Amino acid sequence: MNHDRYEDGYVADILKTVKTVAVVGASPNPSRPSHGVMGFLLSKGYHVIPVNPGQAGKTILGRTVYGRLADIPEPVDMVDVFRASEYVDAVIDEALALDPSPKVIWTQLGVRDDAAAGRAEAAGLKVVQDRCPAIEYPRLIGRR
């Protein structure tokens, strides 16, 4: 897939069908983008699970933080990555080791690894890179 541009329907379908989102790199700091996006997703009815090894066992926005994806005790539909591009490959390795695998890997603005995205797609996952669901949701689905 060409990750330079996505069809609106592709992104909208993801946002309409996923229910449980793991936010890798979630921060307890309200000034951090991951905190704001997590709050936005919660406000839209998504079940959001923060992942941050330095915050494991604590809470962010009332949600228990897990140290890694494998520690989450339930299936996740989408992994939203708030880590630098050089960490995407390892996050995808972790996501692909889950059973069941998530349906979607989403990397935030400025975060991209085309080789890792290709591996995820080869395993049957959808991938969105260098986008923010808090921007795409209002644009494609509305303010609801």
Rank of each mutant, 00 (worst) to 15 (best):
S43F: 14
A90I: 01
F40Y: 15
P75V: 11
S31E: 14
D80F: 08
N52R: 03
I14A: 11
I141Q: 02
S85I: 12
A115K: 12
V81N: 01
V21L: 03
K44A: 06
V127G: 00
L96P: 09
V128W: 00
F82S: 02
S31Y: 04
T17W: 02
N29K: 15
C132L: 07
A12T: 04
N2Y: 05
P102D: 07
V111K: 03
L98M: 15
D8F: 02
P30Y: 08
Y46S: 09
I49C: 02
F82A: 00
V111N: 02
A115T: 13
K19Q: 15
S27V: 02
Q129T: 12
L61R: 14
L69S: 07
Y10N: 07
L41M: 13
D4K: 12
C132N: 07
I60G: 10
R119Y: 12
R143I: 15
V88R: 04
D99M: 06
V65Q: 12
H35W: 15
L15K: 10
E86W: 04
D130V: 05
H47N: 13
A12P: 03
G124H: 08
L69Q: 12
I49H: 08
E7H: 13
V81F: 06
R68N: 14
M1W: 05
V79R: 06
I14L: 14
L98R: 15
I135W: 00
R139P: 06
P138R: 05
P138T: 07
G124S: 02
D8V: 02
P33N: 08
A123R: 13
L140I: 12
R32H: 14
W106I: 07
V104I: 08
S85N: 08
V76F: 09
R144K: 11
K103Y: 03
A70R: 14
G142Q: 02
R63T: 00
N52F: 14
V79D: 10
N29P: 04
V23K: 04
V76K: 07
T17I: 01
A123H: 06
E136I: 02
D8T: 05
L15Q: 11
D4L: 12
K126W: 01
P102I: 14
K44C: 03
P133T: 00
R143K: 13
Y66D: 02
K58P: 00
V111A: 00
S85Y: 10
L98Q: 13
G39W: 05
D114L: 07
K19R: 15
G54I: 01
V76A: 10
F40S: 04
T64F: 00
P53D: 08
K16S: 15
P75R: 12
M78R: 01
A122S: 13
V88I: 15
V11N: 08
L15Y: 10
A116E: 11
P138W: 03
V11R: 03
F40G: 03
D71H: 13
F40K: 01
R112P: 00
D77Q: 06
R139E: 09
G67D: 09
G36W: 03
M78K: 04
I105E: 09
V79Y: 05
L61E: 13
N29T: 05
S85V: 13
G67C: 13
A70T: 11
A84Y: 08
E136P: 00
E136L: 06
A95I: 08
V51M: 09
D93R: 11
